[in-house]
Design a protein around this nucleic acid. Structure first.
Length: 284
DNA sequence: ATAAGGCCCTGACCGC
DNA sequence: TGCGGTCAGGGCCTTA
């Protein structure tokens, strides 16, 4: 499931393959892939354009074009972009074909059909509500603390809210909270500045390491599993401390990892290392 | 304004 | 082997 590290790797992998290429033809095989306009109009508007860069904001992939418009892709759960020779067989999960000027096709493949294409004049039309980039200078421990003030939901829930912080999904929210030693159920407003200092560092280190490891690939099949455009899987799943490790020993203390549901999402944590004791409650 | 829950999709997996 | 049920969950939408 592509989150920030997977999207970042996708953008980086595609950069040398796409920048400078012209789009010679576009075929949308599943109309609802295109957001906000007819797929025919999308195809016409993208045809003939040159891709001048590849970039990322949150979990969105950005492809600025030579006419200053931007093609934007969100992979959601199972979206994948691959570059293949034009004559490669088209399987039933391929929903878009972009013919390039070098005999290659950029293909969008998505078993769950949750992903979307956008074509906009200004990126802000789509990205205005996103919170800060976790790896940018704008994201500071104080910024994190400020954004949690007066918010009652569990900290895990808010970490998944892209308006609070852009790019975290279920895997990296769980991993970052474990690294910071914070109970995912804690009401966000109960985190102290010191908690936010640890969480800020944990988020950055978790994401930076995951990017370096090529992201996380979970599940057995190449269909639903994250694959980089160059075809390889990520390696970070080998370093998950809690995510989908229910019942297995915590790498820090050995206690069994627990799984609960928060905001309709599975949540994994160590009940010992991520303990929350509200003031005035409990003994000692 | 915040908060909570439903919805879209289909492959993988489990128990019988 | 076949089959029904459940799970996976990002972002958008509706409702309170």
């Amino acid at each position: 499931m592509p989150e920030l590290p997977e999207v970042e790797n996708t953008a980086r992998d595609l950069k040398p393959l796409l920048v400078g290429r012209h789009v010679q033809a576009v075929q949308i095989l599943w109309p609802r892939l295109v957001h906000g306009k007819a797929p025919e109009a999308f195809a016409v508007e993208l045809t003939g354009r040159q891709i001048v860069n590849t970039d990322r904001r949150g979990k969105f992939l950005l492809f600025p074009l030579d006419n200053r418009r931007i093609w934007i892709v969100h992979l959601r759960m199972t979206g994948q972009l691959h570059l293949v020779p034009t004559q490669t067989e088209i399987d039933r999960h391929v929903h878009a074909l972009l013919e390039l000027d070098n005999g290659q096709q950029l293909r969008y493949r998505d078993a769950r059909k949750f992903g979307r294409f956008y074509l906009v004049d200004e990126a802000e039309e789509l990205l205005a509500k996103l919170g800060p980039e976790p790896l940018s200078a704008a994201f500071t421990p104080l910024e994190l603390f400020s954004r949690l003030q007066g918010r009652r939901p569990a900290i895990k829930t808010l970490l998944l809210d892209q308006r609070v912080l852009a790019g975290l999904g279920n895997i990296y929210a769980d991993e970052a909270l474990f690294a910071a030693g914070i109970d995912p159920r804690r009401p966000a407003s109960t985190l102290t500045q010191a908690d936010c200092n640890r969480l800020h560092m944990a988020i950055r280190q978790t994401l930076a390491t995951a990017i370096r490891e090529g992201g996380s690939s979970l599940g057995g099949s190449a269909l639903t599993n994250y694959r980089r455009p160059i075809g390889v899987q990520g390696r970070f799943q080998q370093r998950h401390q809690v995510y989908r490790r229910t019942g297995q020993p915590c790498p820090r203390c050995g206690a069994p990892i627990e799984r609960i549901t928060l905001a309709q999402r599975s949540t994994h944590f160590c009940p010992t290392c991520q303990r929350y004791e509200p003031l005035g409650v409990g003994s000692s």
